[in-house]
Write a protein that binds this DNA or RNA. Structure first.
Lengths: 113, 113
DNA sequence: TCCTTAGTTCAAAATATATTGAACTATTGA
DNA sequence: TCAATAGTTCAATATATTTTGAACTAAGGA
C-alpha cells in the first residue's frame, strides 16, 4: 500500500524550492540525507514539531515529490526520492543538502553524534 | 548610491529557497542568468508582471541576497549575486538556473531568440 | 477482544504572502 | 523650469500557508 506521489514529470521546480524553503522541512530533508538507507518513520522527526504539524509538513514533502512515503503497519517509512530528484534537477539536492548541514538544527544533531 | 543588501553571512538557505520558490522570481533569475554581464533594469521584466508587483518581487530577491540592485539615474541595474551565492551555497544557483531554463516562461524566451 | 501506538483528518485560528491602484520621489532631457 | 520616465511606497484586499487540538483510523500486541 502506498500514498499518492507525483511522478517524475509532475515534479515542479518552483514547488520543490518553495517546499524546501522552510526550516522544518529543510531539517527533515537534512536528517533523511544523513540517514540514507535507514528506514525513517515520522516519529524520528518529533524534535522538529508536533505530531500534527509534522504530518502536514511530511505530506508537503511527499506531494512535492521530494520524499517517498511507504506504509508499513501503523508506521510510514520515509525516504528521499534522490534518484528522481537527481534526474529531474541535476545537482540541486546535493547542493541543498550540503548547505543544510550548516543549519542550527544540524549543528545540534552533529554534536550529539 | 545603493539600496540595502544582506552581506554574505546574512544570506540564509531557507529564505533563498523560499524566495526562489515562486514562478515570477524564478523567471527573473532565469532571465538574469541568460543575460549575465548585461545591465538589466526593472523594465526588462515587464512581461512577468505589473510595475508595482515587480517592484515587490525584485525587492524580495534583493533582500534575500540573490540579486544586487544598483541605482543609476532613474533606473536600477539588477544583477545576480553569483559569486556570493556560489561561495555560500556551492552548486545551488547553477542547478536552479539549469532547471529553470525548462520552465514555460523560458521556452518562450528561447523561441524568440 | 481490548488497549496501545502511529499517524491522519478536520475545522478554526493565526500568520504570512501576493496583488492592486493611487500617490509619491528622483532623475533626466527638452 | 517643466514634463516625462523609472521605479517606490502605502494601504487595502485577496489569497495561501502554518499551527493547533480534538476526533478519528488502522494495525499490532497482550
Amino acid at each position: 500500500m502506498s500514498l499518492p506521489h507525483p511522478n517524475l514529470d509532475q515534479i515542479n521546480l518552483a514547488n520543490v524550492l518553495s517546499v524546501l524553503g522552510d526550516q522544518t522541512r529543510l531539517a527533515v530533508v537534512g536528517y533523511l540525507a544523513r540517514n540514507e538507507g535507514v528506514a525513517m518513520s515520522c516519529g524520528q522527526f518529533s524534535e522538529f514539531g508536533s505530531k500534527t504539524n509534522l504530518s502536514y509538513h511530511l505530506a508537503k514533502l511527499r506531494e512535492a515529490g521530494i520524499t517517498r512515503t511507504e506504509v508499513s503497519g501503523t508506521s510510514r517509512l520515509i525516504s528521499l526520492r534522490r534518484d528522481d530528484l537527481d534526474s529531474r534537477f541535476p545537482g540541486l539536492l546535493d547542493s541543498i543538502i550540503t548547505a543544510a548541514q550548516e543549519l542550527p538544527a544540524f549543528e545540534r544533531l552533529r554534536d550529539e553524534a
